[in-house]
Write a protein that binds this DNA or RNA. Structure first.
Lengths: 151, 151
DNA sequence: TTTTCTGCAAATGCTTTGCATGGGA
DNA sequence: TCCCATGCAAAGCATTTGCAGAAAA
């Protein structure tokens, strides 16, 4: 459930950036930041809403969308879409990494590969494109699902 | 407007696969296959619909969606989403390649990099993940947009 | 002739927006 | 106190579905 070595540090960083942008730190936002900074499963808005409802019975999906939208704008969460019609949010790894999407169990695993930088550099040199950010998604079967017969 | 060396061959391949799957080749489908096999700009459903209307005034978006959905199911087009809320379709390069998405002019450039295979292999070895397909999207500025002042 | 496809309209599902109330700073 | 945030409901959009008529094979 953590994946990130420093979820607390991540949360504090997000709070800091929100304050810098003149945003208020409400209990709802604090709870959402906590979930985002600790989760490494790339939750959807609905997932976040379900978690949030445990502490705030009357909270709404709209608030979730507003907050993650805000965090996306200030660069503290990544909005990801793996082609299943709904966005997912990554708030704990704001640096380049690879996603391994298991087509069977639907899990999304993060992989840190140093060679991303080499690959990116080579690409820039060959094409003249200036890379600002990247999405590297590999779809396939995770180790656990490779042994299972039925695909 | 081509990008693919063999648009005709691509179209024939798609027709063949559709026939193999017991699908009928209608004039509308033929026109759509032609557009898809020749275009390298990753058109959206709306884009395809606009093109198609030139020849079929009464055609509908639903038909476009049904046909690209069919082609996707038989593996002849890739459905792509670059985070702008609408899907794009790639029917002329059914092999691994990199997308360079310009955040300014919104153009999507294809880049063929031999090192994709090395990168993918290294990833499999390190993580035990079996890669079936991949999405490698780089967001940034294309050569033409790098000189422009206003971002 | 049979079965699939087309295209209109309605429905769906995720996300955004408007606005009155509530709560940080 | 002054705004910003919340949360409800309604709207917005891309995509899907239902179905009657049209058209491949």
């Amino acid at each position: 459930m953590d994946g990130n070595e420093y979820p607390l540090r991540r949360m504090e960083k997000m709070i800091e950036v929100l304050r810098e942008n003149g945003c208020r730190i409400t209990p709802q936002r604090l709870a959402l930041l906590k979930i985002l900074s600790m989760s490494d499963v790339h939750p959807s808005a609905e997932d976040l809403y379900a978690h949030l409802k445990r502490d705030f019975a009357t909270t709404s999906l709209a608030t979730v969308y507003k907050t993650v939208g805000l965090l996306r704008e200030v660069g503290e969460v990544w909005e990801l879409n793996f082609g299943d019609g709904k966005n997912r949010y990554d708030g704990n790894k704001p640096y380049p990494h690879v996603h391994l999407v298991c087509v069977k169990c639907k899990k999304v695993i993060d992989a840190d590969m140093k060679s991303i930088r080499d690959f990116s550099k080579e690409l820039s040199q060959k094409t003249g494109f200036r890379v600002l950010r990247q999405r590297l998604d590999f779809f396939g079967l995770c180790q656990g699902c490779q042994g299972v017969k039925q695909l």
